[in-house]
């Protein structure tokens, strides 16, 4: 029988995780309870994070966005400021699970469950997010990419927690998240694509693409900035970025698609995501309006 401990402070939570071997943090429960019910895990102690109000909420200070680990996906989805400044992040939140799941699920839970197809990592990766980690020996901050060790595995040491996610959201940067699914709702991504583009006028200064569901961990595609930077929008180079991203992918074949199909989808979605991110960066897209998940909109001229 599982025991649930309910700490009132982060320090208490860290103490409980340190004292009780095998204790599992419980955030929204949409993964932890599901894994227990389906027999994928059998923890003896759960440490409930829901009373740690300091880990909940969205803060914006200048160009820096901070999102507490216990912030619900629903809160992120509906935050107008996030939609204006880092559109890919609420855009990904918007397609995660269902309303009910989004109300319950948290950002920290989505990251720490480390599902390769999780919605939240790719948009955060293209914003250059870092995670604040709290642990028994104090805190540390690591790039988000370094949090993921493999399917279902993180680099967190025993007793450590993700406390918050931080990323810059300058006004000259646009971002976008697209995905391919078999069903529109309540499905995991077969392919998840995030892109960000920063501009100076109409000239691209940098561009980043991150992928989910096509490798053991979410990852940033190398070389996209070198390809796109220092010039205005070029659809041919965006297409080339898509081919680079497909070449960097190493998907499995499963019920959501074959490996070959997933690579083809990556090649198709990357230029669309870059195009929408570019439009958002130059102010050519309605602020706060999400894209269709397949990104099928007119390419920027």
């Amino acid at each position: 029988m599982v025991e649930v401990l309910i700490p009132g402070t982060l320090a208490e939570a860290l103490g409980m995780l340190a004292d009780r071997e095998g204790a599992v943090p419980l955030a929204g429960g949409t993964d932890v309870l599901l894994d227990m019910r389906t027999g994928r895990s059998d923890p003896t102690v759960l440490v409930d994070m829901s009373r740690l109000d300091g880990l909940r909420g969205v803060g914006i200070d200048g160009d820096l966005v901070t999102i507490g680990a216990m912030t619900s996906i629903r809160t992120i989805e509906r935050d107008a400021e996030l939609a204006a400044r880092s559109t890919a992040v609420p855009e990904a939140a918007h397609v995660l699970g269902s309303v009910q799941i989004r109300v319950m699920a948290t950002l920290g839970g989505n990251l720490c469950h480390a599902t390769p197809s999780a919605e939240m990592p790719p948009p955060l990766l293209v914003h250059g997010a870092e995670v604040d980690i709290a642990g028994p020996d104090g805190g540390r901050t690591v790039p988000l990419a370094d949090l993921f060790a493999g399917p279902g595995a993180t680099t967190l040491d025993p007793g450590e927690l993700v406390a918050a996610v931080r990323y810059p959201a300058p006004s000259n940067l646009g971002s976008c998240y697209l995905r391919q699914t078999v069903r529109w709702s309540m499905d995991l991504a077969g392919v998840g694509v995030a892109a960000s583009v920063a501009v100076d006028g109409d000239r691209i200064t940098t561009a980043t693409v991150a992928l989910g569901a096509v490798a053991p961990t979410p990852f940033v595609v190398g070389g996209v900035a070198d390809l796109m930077a220092d010039d205005p929008w070029d659809p041919e180079r965006a297409g080339e970025a898509g081919r680079m991203a497909a070449a960097a992918s190493s998907p499995i074949s499963d019920a959501r698609g074959s490996a070959d199909y997933r690579c083809s989808v990556v090649a198709a979605l990357v230029p669309r995501a870059l195009g929408i991110a570019y439009r958002r960066a130059i102010g050519g897209w309605p602020v706060g309006r999400f894209s269709p998940t397949n990104g099928l909109v007119e390419e920027p001229a």
Binding site: T30, L33, R37, L46, D48, V103
Partner: peptide
Amino acid sequence: SEPVVSCLKACAQLD
């Protein structure tokens, strides 16, 4: 006031 799926909601969190 928010919709949740009660099958995945732990009672321990509902005080």
